[in-house]
Design a protein around this nucleic acid. Sequence first.
DNA 1: CCTGACACTAACATTATTGTGCGTACTTAC
DNA 2: GTAAGTACGCACAATAATGTTAGTGTCAGG
Lengths: 126, 126
Amino acid sequence: MTARKSLSQRLLRGDLMAAACPSREVLRHVTSRWGVLVLIALESRTCRFSELRRMIGGVSERMLAQTLQWLERDGLVSRRALEVVPPHVEYSLTPLGRGVAAKVRVLADWIEENTARIADGWVAAG
Amino acid sequence: MTARKSLSQRLLRGDLMAAACPSREVLRHVTSRWGVLVLIALESRTCRFSELRRMIGGVSERMLAQTLQWLERDGLVSRRALEVVPPHVEYSLTPLGRGVAAKVRVLADWIEENTARIADGWVAAG
DNA sequence: CCTGACACTAACATTATTGTGCGTACTTAC
DNA sequence: GTAAGTACGCACAATAATGTTAGTGTCAGG
């Protein structure tokens, strides 16, 4: 068994500017193409696999599964499989996951609100 | 010449859940591996190319240039080249860029603070 | 004279990420 | 009986992102 709170947990802080820092890995999962969207979708409510697939336009089953596994390993998403037929699996955010999801959501909101402004620059510049 | 404020800018909001929405593109630039770090670095101050390169551990010149160009086209970063020798180029955030950078920074802070907790889960699970 | 700094670009090699199609094992709906 | 839904895993292909190397032109420092 591991200690309840490791030394690193109490003392160390990640440094994203450092190439070798593990925080880089977390960043990649969270900000991956579908990671952002999964976190946002799950922030609203617990979802099944195929619900997520329908909610998130353009995601393939393979990528959705992959992304969910990353986030699960990071302890941000929890998976609950019901032993029934047909299979029923529920994905939800962990307390930790709710933390990131909130931040991610704020960023996503900003992007949704400002995309039109940004896209105007694209057409103006050609 | 384009209209001062396009219809889309006043009326439409991006929808990240829609596969074809342009907001997806903005999201990709902002959350790209180096995009996040560039925005954070520039939030603290205007920087020269090689300063950014030194600040952001592990970034190659090619990727830094690429990322800066994406963000510049999106109107988030502005580039100012002084006509001197040796070349002197300054990168800074536009007002729009300051908007995203603030949101990105909050996310990055969260990750830096919680990476230790997350990484603990990695070792525990093996 | 030789090197390094500066801010890149172009060409090429290599990963990483993503997509596609198929298979699973069972059930309900048509 | 046939198709579709369920939640994926696996193999392979394609595309996107990233890295590596070399080169540009000028000038200051050793």
